[in-house]
Design a protein around this nucleic acid. Structure first.
Length: 527
RNA sequence: GCGGGUGUAGCUCAGGGGUAGAGCGCAACCUUGCCAAGGUUGAUGUCGUGAGUUCGAAUCUCAUCACCCGCUCCA
């Protein structure tokens, strides 16, 4: 499968985005103010979906496991923490662009060059009267012909021409001057063209702590955390001291993180504010590689349990040289999005790098005492780090389905169904009185509704025709619809009294079930 | 950040220097009946935003913002 999306996939993605807005899953942030780039809000159904995902993740990884404890750390993070973790130094790169080719270069990786710089102040075209005032330079090494500088400059100025028929050769250069330059990194080594000034692409959101914070206060600068992991490492010692734990054990956290992405793309996939679901699983060094493999399997099963089949997932064993320098093994779990195969989760063996760094920078003894081995050690760590919003997007993409069905009159129509697993579905059951102008039906339906609401998200709908109500529920992925009809009231005798029809989303089949069994039936299906 | 495209009702989109349009959806009512049914009635827009040209701009020009595609970037 290609990484690029085909036209068909683009259309599919547009339909998904449209449905998400129309039905209240996802809205763009601050839309009425023109929209915030790279920020998205979850609407009523999106919020439910996200809660279901987070709750299930927490249940599987914390509630149902004795070896993992939860944590919920602050988002504001001291500069010193991020200095220790390496984010402060390595998280921003000075970048510059070639003015001629628009190539982007790392400013700190340019070889210094020497030679003669040819400066220009602009260019003009006599016949058309066109001109441009803009400083530009070209650097030539010693043995290059000076006409090369002029040729390059004409090419540069020609991009401002509105009439593309004019040949760059016809341009008249203005204000040529030369200058000897040594060890400059202002020019593109490839073609000698001037580069833009280096810009820092700081990927972290910086902020001020304290109302009167000033620059000189080392605790005056804070960042919105770029990952949840650091909270866990920094609180490692406190968690160990306040709980009886033995290796291996994990600390889990769900929370927001922030990265000032240069170019947010693909709907919510690359957002500037996003939620992570992370575990740092601490272990002895000799178990690190094995546990990484085990976690990969555990995590793949999780995706299956929430309705993302293994066939749509890809595991990338990140090769040497592409992993973070401290990682001995990293698996990326990727999903086949309509816009390409993209990462959902990374399972990384981070060695003892993080704890070591924090021990070094904080100067605090944060070693773990292993009671069984009677030794002090710094544990290694395996990190399954899942993107919550990315998983939501995968759930939505996976659920979306269009089904062609033929009605009684032989007419074909399209049924749009969100095939969420009942466990993830934002609405678990819709309660529908067959007709709303019959008070007995409405009263009974309300009774069923309030019986179920303490246990699950129930949607009550009495408008429009029953068929239409079913289809509405299909479009938001409600797995079950319960209809209260005249049999429920006992009109057809005692046998069907207090039974309802339950209609299943995927098969559209219905059967009768006593109201008394409804709760258990539904709970079994959505647990 | 660069290049290309798009922006009009909740959604999908047509139109186009002179009264703002369609389909679907939505709301209300009627119908003892189960897969977008039928009928009646109704609501909704600073035509993305800001400036300019014009007697007059949703339409033309410029800027700007957002989204999509490609490139780039992704510790």
């Amino acid at each position: 499968m290609s990484d690029k999306s085909s036209e068909k996939d683009q259309v599919l993605m547009e339909k998904i985005v449209s449905l998400c807005k129309r039905r209240g899953f996802i809205f763009q942030s601050a839309e009425i103010y023109g929209g915030a780039n790279g920020c998205w809000d979850y609407g009523p159904l999106g919020a439910e979906l996200k809660r279901n995902l987070k709750d299930y993740w927490w249940r599987k990884n914390v509630q149902e496991r004795e070896d993992i404890l939860g944590l919920d750390g602050s988002i504001l993070t001291l500069e010193s923490v991020l200095e220790a973790s390496g984010h402060l130094g390595g998280f921003s790169d000075p970048m510059c662009d070639c003015l001629l080719t628009k190539a982007r270069l790392r400013a700190d990786e340019i070889d210094p060059q020497s030679g003669t710089a040819y400066h220009y102040t602009g260019a003009s075209h006599e016949e058309s009267g066109w001109s441009v005032d803009r400083a530009y330079s070209v650097l030539l090494s010693e043995n290059q012909d000076e006409n090369k500088a002029r040729k390059t400059a004409r090419l540069y100025y020609s991009q401002f021409l509105s009439d593309k028929q004019i040949s760059p050769k016809k341009l008249e250069l203005a204000g040529e001057s030369t200058e000897e330059v040594t060890d400059s990194t202002s020019y593109n080594p490839e073609n000698g063209s001037l580069l833009t000034a280096a810009r820092e692409f700081n990927l972290m959101f910086k902020t001020k702590m304290g109302a009167s914070a000033d620059e000189s206060d080392p605790k005056g600068t804070a960042y919105l955390r770029p990952e949840t992991a650091q909270t866990i490492f920094v609180q490692f010692k406190n968690v160990v001291d306040s709980n009886r734990v033995k290796l291996p054990f994990g600390i889990a956290q769900i929370g927001k993180s922030f990265r000032n992405e240069i170019n947010p793309r693909n709907y919510t996939f690359r957002s500037r504010e996003f939620e992570q679901m992370e575990i740092e699983y601490f272990c002895r060094e000799e178990d690190g590689m094995r546990l990484t493999d085990e976690w990969l399997e555990t995590r793949l099963s999780f995706y299956e349990e929430i309705g993302i089949p293994r066939e749509h997932l890809h595991v990338l064993d990140v090769p040497d040289g592409e992993r973070a320098h401290y990682s001995k093994r990293t698996y990326d779990i990727e999903y086949e999005f309509p816009f390409g195969i993209q990462e959902l989760e990374g399972v990384a063996y981070r060695t003892d790098y993080d704890l070591k760094k924090h021990r070094e920078h904080s100067g605090k003894p944060i070693e773990f005492f292993d009671d069984e081995a009677k030794e002090k050690l710094l544990p290694h760590v395996v990190e399954p780090s899942a993107g919550c919003d990315r998983t939501i997007l995968a759930l939505i993409c996976e659920a979306y389905d269009e089904e062609t069905i033929t009605d009684d009159k032989g007419k074909e129509e399209t049924r749009i169904v969100m095939r969420f697993s009942p466990r993830m579905a934002p609405i678990k059951v819709a309660v529908l009185p067959l007709l709303k102008n019959k008070p007995e039906l409405v009263a009974k339906a309300r009774e069923v509704q309030s019986m179920l609401t303490p246990f699950m998200n129930v949607f009550y709908d009495e408008t429009a025709a029953i068929g239409r109500r079913y289809r509405r529920q299909d479009e938001v992925g409600t797995p079950f619809c319960v209809t209260i009809d005249f049999e429920t009231l006992g009109e057809n005798g005692d046998e069907d009294k207090d039974t309802v029809t339950i209609r299943e989303r995927d098969s559209m089949e219905q059967r009768r079930i006593p109201i008394s069994e409804l709760r258990e039936y539904l709970l079994d299906a959505i647990v």
